[in-house]
Design a protein around this nucleic acid. Structure first.
Length: 966
RNA sequence: GCCGAAGUGGCGGAAUUGGCAGACGCGCAGGAUUCAAAAUCCUGUUCUGGCAACAGAGUGUGGGUUCGAUUCCCACCUUCGGCACCA
């Protein structure tokens, strides 16, 4: 207001045009000063418990040095509009923002420059905060935090300790706080020990408590203390295991799959990469696989995203089957007599039966098609499989060793790139097919993956195309066990049909044959029905500096103790050098940057020396639970107060990019379920509604050589594009924004040219939120003009006072109807996240009002409220110029009158044989009979049906009439 | 290869989910205003033919269901995103 007065005094004649450069900073300062968007928590003095709540959350950004690109604010604009709208509708709205601040780029920068990642991150956050404020987002800034601060990661470590301190009791049936029956839950590890001690239960190698006496189980009471500890450790939800990783000694670090090139080298520096097992922290997400699938039923997510999660978890049903080893290498345990083995297995009561964990004398496979067992003509082991070494005969040893070595050194991509050509080597060993006792050769091939199922398959070339290809390549027998249709001319037949060549199964359809075979396997102790998941446990270790340290202390003897909760956080120490230790030796073990923290890395406790864990957690860790910290970000005694959690959770609306559809959302759901099992949170699922914004793409221009030309150097003439100056024709393509494409649009530039309100409107007007669509700066002036036109409805640019056309007389009916229609449409569209059509309606309103000589003030006042979620700055300015005190955001959303929101007369089409021949104006509620009569009486229609017989008339109220005549 | 999403004017897109295809915006054309321009306002703008009224075609392609299909079904083509031989 002050600046406006100055302008009025100094410029003559006064031109009080829409001046976003003054308005936007002015109101941003006002919001900041008045804490306009602060949201009180339950228990606070100014908390209004009578209001319903909405928790509206954005996926928080990584504070990169490049700042926000135009893709970030797409989702942020959407949630901001929805949050402002929700407040006006009388909701308590939790709308926070923070930073996912641990991560690789800051560390890479530190390695190159020696600048501490904390300093880089702090600087980047400051820039990003400036940008976020520049957009006018209504975040509650008092709740802002970054995941890299000790106050925050203290609780990340605390949750890790919960994972460490729990096991998953898969057989536990329980009723949750919402009264739902659930199978399986996390329980404290001390309960496991108590169960084992008291109940004299047994524990098997899979870490399952078992009663009964299957032969691979061990009597708990027979174990010594150390063996008990390690058995317990193996059951934890956070456990240590050896898993193969992409080890790059020259970089001194482990690489992600996407950092490894096809020829098995690092994409940074082109160093050799080796796949080798490494001791890693693992999180047992697989224990929750079933519940992660089931509980998708509880959330309102887009079906495609749910489908992607289901596919990722990849539940399949089938059977595990044991194939006894008939012959192999010198040391291999063997089954001499197949019939005797079968008899022994069948005798369940005297130590036979199907063991929970396979013994050495069999190859255990998982199959989804137990009905095809009679067609299993060879076996395949993954190259990493334990049995490979033992089953290989001396004659085949060299070939197998060479094959295994080459496969192990291949990257995943390389190993799986070519799906047509199969490679593999015969081990020389044989197993018996348990269905018919046939001696079946055992091969090793890299198309079988150790990470899925049991790492071994029975190959059924008749019903599996991959097996068919392999059998053809190596001249192995093929037996069809499902009868294909007579006209079938393909290779493997995977369709439905009666079983053939399958003894007792012959004639059965696939489902019945599966069931019968599983029953047979179970009754004879040779196999059992099984469920399998593609999902694997989560490798939770990174050999990095810039992440959360593990709150675990290691004794010299290999045992571990958790850091006391009272000693959290385990703070990340300062180091001189952030580089991992590099080496040219493939066998050199990783030494993460934290090994350079010489003071920190050992610690004395009660006279005993412990080594700290030198690894850090992955970036996912911080983002797994940040939505809970926003509820109560400064709580020093708990990750958040139970009261805040009970009130705010679940997140009602979660908006972010579809690229997080699987990993982030699955990991966060997993952690949430752990906290739920422990009674720390009250909802089974964290995110009730999920919306995936599309990607903002950009036009890019290529010359004839395929080289990209900078946007600024492109001119358009007659719909074609040319390079400025040399008139070379360019090809326009739509692609991701990237530096390489030279088509990056910076939001700072757009805002300095058109303002934040116009920017927000443009992004929302581009198209549906979920769709990917190209940015086109050419279109921005369209919404910028809208704001100017709105401005002129209120402000007379000559005098700077309110427009003389604004009248206090009662509104004309047409304008009143337009207003109510607009209130209805905009409200409904915001609620449905259809912002593009909401803005279309704002245009229609302005188009209606602009030509009027006299405009009702009452209507214009209501319209300011309607635009305020989209264009908060200009709305505040107009609201204040209309003489109101206080922020427009504190006003209520206007209520529409249904009778005014719809037209009383409508135009309907009259068709003859589906072609429109006339249009008539009728009352909106005219019934079908009236429409039919009016249609038949219409002159053009009579002409159109002259000489024809009217067969049928279809009249749809308020829509159309169709006359069938011939 | 598999899974998912999508294909509508010169461009971004709309269409109550089976009921007038092209709302709204951009661009373009014409007009008003102006000494002139910018800005602003008004009019037109799917394509083809016609001065016009009007006629015909038209939502990736080809079929089908229906009085009626952008919408539902079948086959195919193209683009984008994800996954990588998942037994």
């Amino acid at each position: 207001m002050y600046l406006w007065c100055v302008m009025q005094q100094t410029s003559d004649p006064v031109r009080d045009v829409y001046d976003f450069k003054t308005i936007e900073p002015k109101w941003q300062a006002y919001w900041e000063e008045n804490e306009t968007y602060r949201q009180a928590n339950p228990g606070d003095d100014d908390f209004d418990a009578s209001k319903p709540k909405r928790y509206i959350l954005d996926m928080f950004p990584y504070p990169s040095g490049a700042g926000l690109h135009v893709g970030h604010p797409l989702g942020y604009c959407a949630t901001d509009i929805y949050a402002r709208f929700s407040r006006m509708q009388g909701f308590n709205v939790l709308h926070p923002m923070g930073y996912d601040a641990f991560g690789l780029p800051a560390e890479q920068y530190a390695i190159e420059t020696g600048v501490h990642p904390a300093a880089t991150t702090k600087k980047n956050i400051a820039n990003m905060r400036r940008q976020l404020k520049m957009f006018g987002f209504s975040y509650d800034w008092q709740r802002e935090f970054a995941t890299c601060t000790p106050d925050y990661y203290k609780w990340t470590q605390w949750i890790f300790l919960r994972l460490f301190d729990c096991w998953f009791d898969a057989t536990c049936e329980w009723v949750d706080t919402k009264g739902r029956k659930t199978l399986g839950r996390a329980r404290a590890i001390c309960e496991l020990r108590a169960l084992l001690d008291e109940a004299q239960s047994d524990i098997n190698e899979a870490g399952e408590i078992v009663s009964g006496s299957a032969k691979t189980t061990t009597r708990w009471s027979a174990l010594d203390d150390k063996a008990k500890d390690s058995a317990i450790d193996a059951c934890r939800l956070a456990y240590i295991d050896e898993v193969p990783v992409n080890w790059c000694p020259a970089l001194g670090t482990v690489l992600a799959n996407e950092e490894v090139t096809n020829d098995g080298r690092s994409d940074r520096g082109n160093h050799p990469v080796f796949r080798r097992p490494l001791r890693q922290w693992m999180l047992r997400i697989t224990a929750y696989a079933e519940r992660l699938i089931d509980d998708l039923k509880l959330v309102d997510w887009p079906e495609p995203i749910k489908l992607m999660q289901r596919n990722w978890i990849g539940r399949s049903t089938g059977a595990e089957v044991d194939f006894p080893i008939a012959s192999g290498g010198p040391g291999a345990p063997m089954v001499e007599d197949f019939n005797a083995w079968q008899t022994e297995r069948s005798n369940v009561d005297s130590g036979g039966g199907f063991a929970r964990v396979a013994d050495d004398s069999v190859i255990r496979v998982y199959t989804t098609r137990p009905d095809t067992l009679f067609g299993a003509t060879y076996m395949v082991l993954a190259p990493e499989h334990d049995l490979v070494a033992r089953i290989t005969t001396p004659e085949q040893r060299d070939a197998v060793d060479a094959y295994v070595r080459s496969a192990v050194h291949k990257s995943d991509l390389d190993r799986t790139a070519d799906t047509k050509t199969k490679s593999g080597v015969f081990t020389g060993g044989y197993v018996y097919n348990p269905a018919n006792g046939e001696r079946t050769p055992v091969w090793v091939a890299d198309y079988v993956l150790m990470g899925y199922g049991t790492g071994a398959i029975m190959a059924v070339p008749g019903q599996d195309q991959r097996d068919w290809d392999f059998a053809k390549a190596f001249d192995l027998p093929i037996i069809r066990t499902v009868k294909p249709p007579d006209d079938f001319d393909g290779n493997a037949y995977v369709g439905e049909g009666p079983a053939i060549n399958s003894g007792m199964l012959d004639g059965l359809n696939i489902a019945d044959a599966k069931a019968k075979m599983i029953a047979h396997l179970e009754s004879t102790g040779q196999g059992c029905g099984a469920v399998n998941y593609k999902l694997r446990d989560w490798v939770f270790t990174r050999q990095r500096y810039w992440g959360e340290p593990f709150p675990i202390l290691h004794r010299a003897d290999g045992t571990m103790v958790p850091v006391d909760e009272g000693d959290l956080p385990v703070e990340l120490p300062a180091v001189e050098d952030y580089k991992p230790t590099i080496s040219n030796d493939e066998d050199h073990l990783p030494e993460p940057p934290l090994s350079r923290a010489t003071e920190w890395k050992t610690i004395e406790r009660d006279g005993e020396t412990f080594a700290r864990d030198l690894n850090t957690m992955p970036q996912w860790a911080g983002s797994c639970w940040y939505y809970l910290r926003f509820l109560d970000p400064t709580n020093a005694t708990r990750f958040c107060s139970p009261q805040a959690e009970a009130y705010w959770m679940p997140v009602d609306t979660y908006v972010g990019g579809a690229e997080h559809a699987v990993l982030h959302l699955l990991y966060a759901r997993f952690w949430h379920k752990l906290l739920f099992d422990l009674g720390e949170v009250q909802t089974a699922e964290p995110f009730q509604n999920l919306i995936n914004q599309g990607m903002i793409q950009a036009f890019a221009y290529e010359d004839s050589r395929g080289v990209n030309v900078f946007l600024d150097d492109v001119v358009e003439r007659d719909g074609a594009f040319y390079r400025k100056g040399d008139d070379e024709p360019l090809q326009q393509i739509v692609t991701k924004m990237s530096k390489a494409r030279r088509n990056v649009v910076n939001p700072d530039d757009i805002i300095s040219q058109f303002g934040a309100d116009a920017f927000r409107c443009y992004e929302m007007f581009m198209g549906p939120l979920e769709a990917s669509k190209p940015w086109n700066t050419r279109d921005v002036p369209g919404v910028f003009k809208l704001l100017n036109r709105i401005w002129r409805l209120y402000v007379d640019p000559e005098s700077g006072s309110l427009s003389p056309a604004m009248s206090s007389a009662p509104a004309d009916e047409a304008s009143l109807r337009m207003l109510h229609k607009t209130i209805k449409k905009v409200g409904q569209d915001i609620h449905a996240f259809k912002f593009n059509t909401a803005i279309g309606q704002l245009f229609e309103f302005v188009n209606h009002m602009t030509p009027l000589k006299e405009r009702s003030r009452e209507i214009l006042e209501a319209f300011v409220l309607l635009i305020s979620p989209f264009t908060p700055h200009v709305a505040e300015e107009l609201w204040s110029r209309l003489g109101h005190n206080g922020s427009v955001s504190k006003e209520s959303w206007p209520v529409f009158d249904e009778s005014l929101a719809k037209d009383d007369m409508v135009e309907i089409a009259i068709q003859v044989m589906g072609k429109v021949k006339a249009r008539i104006e009728v009352p909106a509620d005219a019934d079908e009979k009236t429409l039919e009569d009016l249609a038949l009486a219409n002159a053009s229609i009579q002409a159109a049906i002259a000489g024809k017989t009217v067969r049928k008339v279809i009249a749809i109220k308020g829509r159309l009439v169709n006359i069938v005549a011939n």
